[in-house]
Write a protein that binds this DNA or RNA. Structure first.
Length: 697
DNA sequence: GGAGCCATAAACAGAC
DNA sequence: CGTCTGTTTATGGCTC
């Protein structure tokens, strides 16, 4: 729930609103320049120099301010920030809330708190930054004004004299200089803002459009935003918002020479060559045949959608409605930023994809190198491998697909299991390797899967490919005491899986249902109340049929793994069944009775698995001979007896005492043997990493 | 088609 | 009285 709220806050980012409003009001206030003195600027020093100076000062100050903010936000002794505050490449804003803030804060504060804090900081920073810029602009305009006055006077004089031409040129050049300064300022501002955005220090933009970008950008939203921007009648405010900062100067009356000039140049900085006039119009007319802004009989100008029968009409419309004015330039700018943000996003996603691909490719056993131009593609191919074609458009294929697979690094167990039956599958690797993986995987069930992908499941709204029963069991076994209250189980679910942060009623009911329904979950009355424990014997009892019965189940599991939701339930069951074959030893906790139990019980499963494997032909060396032997040993000895003897002599309410007693009996050796041959270590690591971050009540 | 497993929904009861 | 917890039943999907 907390997470839920956190994400909510992220989406709404109220601070943005504040930023906007403050901005607009400020810019309005900028009108005060009129009455403002002409004083200081005056004349001896060249205005350009002055501007330069001021700009630099302003930027300097702004930078310092940002640095302070940044360092305040980030870890205390962050020197890095000092060096290149603007360089931070990572778009933290895109990352999950947890990533945004330093770990320490993360640990101290709850996500909502962090979020609120961040927003505050961001709003503050933005505000102050904007103030700086605003001041600079005001000064610029003051200068412009005074310049104009001077020029006008000059003009008059010159008119009287006659050297009109020269005067005009002078005037023009001076204006141009100012305008260029303005443009530079604007560019700097933009860059600054962008950098801030990249650093996640500032909300994408004060504009609503940017906000929406930050989330999933849906075209309709954008359109709406565009309309907002363009629709406002005397869209001063909106424009200013849209532009992030500037344009405050030339309020509505574009008739005045300066504003017009200034605004006219705004688009310039998108044009490298600096041609000042009507760049857009020209370009528009160039593509008379097929105009990029014209399609399906309507104008595609952001937020426009005006119907135009033919090109001519469209051109007219374009020239009339989207001429070079404040609104258009503002829209253009917004569009620029949209594109920029998209590019950033694209870069990020590409990077991620790259990482995923490399990771997946690294897998030695990967039978089919998937051609993944896309995340989806990769996951899809994987899915298809074992199960037939899978519906494309998996909910959260990227990581989900990747994750389930990743665990296979130790051995694509899942696949292997499937391979048992799916001979036809072009597993390049012989039976041997497959098997191993198989067994390996079995040895690193849900635990490793979770451990390795915990981050993914934590953040991605993907349904985990495990059954409720297996999840509950895992949660319980993961706990120090191997027992959890219902509420604790709930918490574990929400903590570990973003998916379970919604529809709480549904899955909680399912959890309760499972707890009650399955004999393997034993309710134990505790001092504090009731806690739930796992009866491994019972848990294992119901497994065998599945595994032995249907190898295909395992096969399907893979699809379940990569798969988000459709067959989720069933697939989950399958996945879980195979995953938890050999129950994972307690990942985080030292060998305990429970772990023992798990192992022992697991043997059962393992043995069954083994049987399959053997039947297939080769043995599973990977299953670490030791482990193997152990399993067999145990099984031989009396897996179940041992189990029951150990912790569940009375399968029921004996959670604590027995467990501890058994601990020493033999578990250690077993565990030792198993653990090291198994990929577990890494899992343990992962889990440990994982655990600290989340508080276990 | 039946068996088995699972998820989901819902009714119900008892405790807090 | 509302919520939480726990039990139970019903239903539907899926695979073997």
């Amino acid at each position: 729930m907390m997470v839920e709220s956190a994400s909510e806050t992220i989406r709404t980012t109220p601070s943005n609103q504040n930023g906007v409003s403050s901005l607009s009001s400020q810019s309005d206030g900028g009108g005060g320049r009129e009455g403002g003195s002409k004083g200081d600027t005056n004349g001896e020093i060249s205005p350009v120099d002055l501007l330069h100076l001021q700009q630099q000062q302003a930027l300097q100050a702004a930078r310092q301010f940002l640095l302070q903010q940044a360092s305040g936000l980030n870890s205390p002794g962050s020197n890095e920030v000092k060096q290149s505050p603007v360089q931070v490449p990572v778009s933290m804003a895109m990352m999950s809330p947890q990533m945004i803030t330093p770990q320490q804060m993360q640990q101290i504060l709850s996500p909502p708190q962090l979020q609120a804090l961040l927003q505050q900081q961001q709003a503050l920073m933005l505000q102050q930054l904007q103030e700086y810029y605003k001041k600079q602009q005001e000064q610029l305009h003051l200068q412009l004004l005074t310049q104009q006055q001077q020029q006008q006077q000059q003009q008059q004089q010159q008119q009287q004299q006659a050297g009109k031409q020269a005067a005009k040129e002078q005037l023009g050049s001076k204006q141009l200089a100012f305008q260029q300064q303005l443009i530079q300022m604007q560019q700097l501002q933009q860059q600054h803002i962008l950098n801030l955005q990249r650093q996640g220090l500032v909300p994408l933009q004060p504009t609503a459009a940017m906000q929406s970008l930050q989330q999933a950008m849906c075209p309709s939203d954008l359109q709406q935003l565009w309309k907002e921007v363009s629709g406002v009648p005397s869209s001063d405010e909106a424009l200013k918002q849209a532009e992030g900062l500037d344009l405050s100067t030339n309020s509505s009356n574009s008739t005045s020479a300066f504003p017009k000039a200034a605004s006219a140049h705004i688009p310039l900085h998108s044009l490298p060559n600096g041609q000042s006039h009507t760049p857009k119009r020209d370009s528009h007319e160039e593509h008379a045949g097929s105009h990029p802004l014209y399609g399906h009989g309507e104008c595609k100008w952001p937020g426009c959608e005006a119907l135009c029968e033919d090109m001519g009409q469209f051109i007219k419309h374009l020239n009339n409605e989207h001429a070079l004015d404040d609104r258009s330039t503002a829209q253009c700018r917004v569009q620029m930023q949209v594109v920029q943000q998209l590019e950033i996003q694209l870069a990020k996603e590409s990077e991620r994809l790259q990482a995923m691909m490399t990771h997946l490719h690294m897998r030695p056993s990967e039978p089919k190198p998937f051609n993944q131009p896309l995340n989806l593609a990769s996951s899809g191919s994987l899915l298809k491998r074992d199960s037939e074609a899978y519906p494309e458009g998996l909910p959260h294929p990227p990581t989900s697909a990747a994750t389930p697979i990743t665990p296979l690094r130790q051995g694509p167990s899942v696949i292997s299991s499937s391979s048992l039956h799916t001979h036809s599958h072009s597993h390049t690797h012989g039976v041997g390797p497959i098997r191993r993986r198989n067994s390996d995987k079995y040895c690193t069930p849900i635990a490793s899967e979770l451990a390795q992908n915990c981050e993914f499941y934590k953040n991605a709204d993907v349904r985990p490919p495990f059954t409720y029963a297996s999840l509950i069991r895992h949660a319980i076994l993961e706990s120090p005491d191997k027992q959890l209250t219902l509420n604790e189980i709930y918490n574990w679910f929400t903590r570990k899986f973003a998916y379970f942060r919604r529809n709480t009623a549904t899955w909680k009911n399912a959890v309760r249902h499972n707890l009650s329904l399955h004999k393997c979950f034993v309710r134990v009355e505790n001092v504090k109340g009731a806690v739930w424990t796992v009866d491994e014997v019972e848990y294992q009892k119901r497994r065998p049929p599945k595994m032995t019965g249907s190898p295909t189940l395992v096969k399907n599991m893979i699809s379940g793994l990569g798969f988000g939701s459709l067959n989720a339930s069933y697939q989950a069951a399958l996945a879980e069944s195979s995953l938890s074959l050999l129950n994972s030893p307690p990942l985080v906790t030292p060998p305990s009775a429970a772990s023992l139990n798990m192992l022992h019980v697991g043997h059962d499963d393992v043995s069954s698995t083994v049987e399959q494997v053997n039947s297939n032909g080769s043995c599973s060396p990977t299953l670490s001979p030791q482990q193997y032997s152990i399993c067999l040993e145990d099984t031989d000895t009396s897996p179940y007896c041992r189990l029951s003897g150990l912790s569940f002599s009375h399968p029921v309410h004996v959670k604590e005492e027995p467990t501890e007693v058994e601990e020493d009996s033999r578990p250690v050796s077993l565990l030792a043997g198993v653990t090291h041959n198994l990929p577990l270590p890494s899992d343990e690591r992962d889990l440990e990493e994982d655990l600290p971050t989340e508080e276990l009540e």
